[in-house]
Amino acid sequence: MSDATLPASFSDLQPWTSWALATERERSDKRQASSMEEILVFYNALLPRAEAALEYLEQYPLERMPADANMLLLLTLSLAEVAPAVELFGQPGVVDGYDVRRFQPERRG
């Protein structure tokens, strides 16, 4: 996925496309497998661009996102994934938490 491109106006986020992952399982695994330093650089790159990204994405219905826009959307979902690590726990995983890899996620609709 990391050789695909983002919309031109978000090309500054191109270094972070390895976080453009399609499922909760993949995003969660990436968070758990990353160091806090790696999570922080991603978080710090995305946070100031998130509002602009969501505003840009408003032009497309969710069901019919072009590939580059969808990649940007997936980056914002990874920002949501790592937010608790940065803002609440100060470590990749939940402090004193149940092992998230034992949670089988499933989405409908």
């Binding site: 909760e24 998130a50 990204a53 969501l54 994405l57 408003e58 497309y60 219905p61 969710l62 996102m65 826009a69 959307l73 914002t76 979902l77 949501a80 994934e81 937010a83 608790p84 609440l88 726990f89 939940v94 004193d96 938490g97 149940y98 998230v100 949670f103 609709g109």
Partner: peptide, 29 residues
Amino acid sequence: KAQTASQRFTQEYGHVLFRDIILEDGRTL
């Protein structure tokens, strides 16, 4: 059902936060 990217993002934020909260509950069990 989310219609826009903002709604999808908001739901994902709430979903991940909720998951991490119940992971705290889960550890005690």
